[in-house]
Computed example of a mutant assay.
Amino acid sequence: MTVVMPGVFHDGREEIRAYMAAACAGPLKGSNGPLKGSKPLDEPRRIRFLSPGTAVVVSEAGILLAGENELPADRIRRATWVLVRGPHDRTWAITSYHDAPA
């Protein structure tokens, strides 16, 4: 799996896991700080099936902070997800993710 965001490139589960663990221990920590009571938003805007087991999803995303009812324009992101499904499985897995300011 790969993750590409402005200023960020991570390749492989361990790199992504380490990045997310650091974010959740710091700026995304839910028990205190500015993101306490926040929730992620991710609304699919377009889904394309390239084959029965491969899909590309374009979504609008962001983090709604505590007390907010609407996502401010400067925090709206566009994300692209590449999803694959195993040949004997109905479970979809993310193989690539990219986001950028909208």
Rank of each mutant, 00 (worst) to 15 (best):
R17P: 09
R17D: 14
A18S: 12
A18G: 08
Y19P: 11
Y19V: 05
Y19T: 04
M20A: 13
M20K: 13
A21V: 03
A22I: 04
A22E: 11
A22Q: 12
A22V: 03
A22K: 15
A23Q: 13
A23D: 13
C24H: 14
G26V: 07
G26R: 14
G26H: 13
G26Q: 14
G26M: 11
P27Y: 10
L28Y: 06
L28Q: 10
L28T: 12
L28D: 15
G30E: 13
G30R: 15
G30H: 09
S31Q: 06
S31D: 11
N32H: 11
N32Q: 12
N32K: 06
N32L: 00
N32A: 13
N32W: 01
N32M: 05
G33P: 06
P34F: 05
P34G: 06
P34W: 05
L35I: 10
L35A: 11
L35H: 10
L35S: 12
L35F: 07
K36G: 04
K36T: 14
G37K: 01
G37T: 12
G37V: 10
S38P: 09
S38L: 02
S38A: 10
S38Q: 01
K39G: 07
K39N: 00
P40W: 09
L41W: 05
L41A: 01
D42C: 03
D42S: 03
E43K: 04
E43G: 02
P44Q: 06
R45L: 09
R45S: 07
R46Y: 00
R46N: 12
I47Y: 06
I47D: 08
